[in-house]
Amino acid sequence: MSENTVIELKHIDKHYGNLHVLKDVNLSIKKGEVVVIIGPSGSGKSTLCRTINRLEGIDSGEVLIEGEKLPDSGKELAKLRSRIGMVFQSFNLFAHKTILENVTIGPVEVLHMNKTEAEKEAMELLKRVGVASQANKVPAQLSGGQQQRVAIARSLAMHPIAMLFDEPTSALDPEMINEVLNVMTELAREGMTMVIVSHEMNFARRVADRVVFMADGELIEENTPEEFFEHPKTQRAKDFLDSIKK
């Protein structure tokens, strides 16, 4: 493992009953790298993404975060989780909290940051994702695109060493997709380490350092976006790219 590896998955196997969702998955992600995971529906992309912070347990294998083994449960796991941001398809903002509170709750309650300081920082993050004017509203009063940007700010407030995105734009109306992708592009440019499950191929081309193609629980192919999209090596990747072009 190189000095710069932030996330490393080694020989991950996982079953749901008889379904073998992850088959000997190996993946390592370097500091500042943006990895986009693509593949057909049901191939295990979300499951893979969620094993990285143990929202899903695994049967065997190892997840290493900055070289440290991810604990199975308890306080230590919570602590490691707090260092990896996660953005969900359905935003999952805390419905009973204001936008500002959604962003400060992690720093205040988990990192024990002083409240005034957390609020100041949260306002800066909200400004950065373009929703500062909504700070005192509750999530249900915001559009999907705005909610997703707040969710990104909520993750950023924890000063994560990496961020996971599981189809962050799939639940959005088309006109809101770009506002979220723009924030993500900006993050990538600033050097954030990101693992992104996405169906947005243009975005992947533009932002990814590496594209990982997944099918039936296996990592089939990895490459730079140029190579992967122009010269896919495997038949499955070719078929998949053809199917989405149509």
Binding site: L55, A78, R81, G85, M86, N92, L93, G106, V110, S155
Partner: peptide, 20 residues
């Protein structure tokens, strides 16, 4: 979803129960 979000920002079980 909210429960997973709480866990993903590093909340322990008691904290998540109390706050969320």
């Amino acid at each position: 979803g909210q429960i997973e979000a709480a866990r993903s920002i590093g909340m322990t079980f008691p904290l998540m129960m109390r706050k969320i």
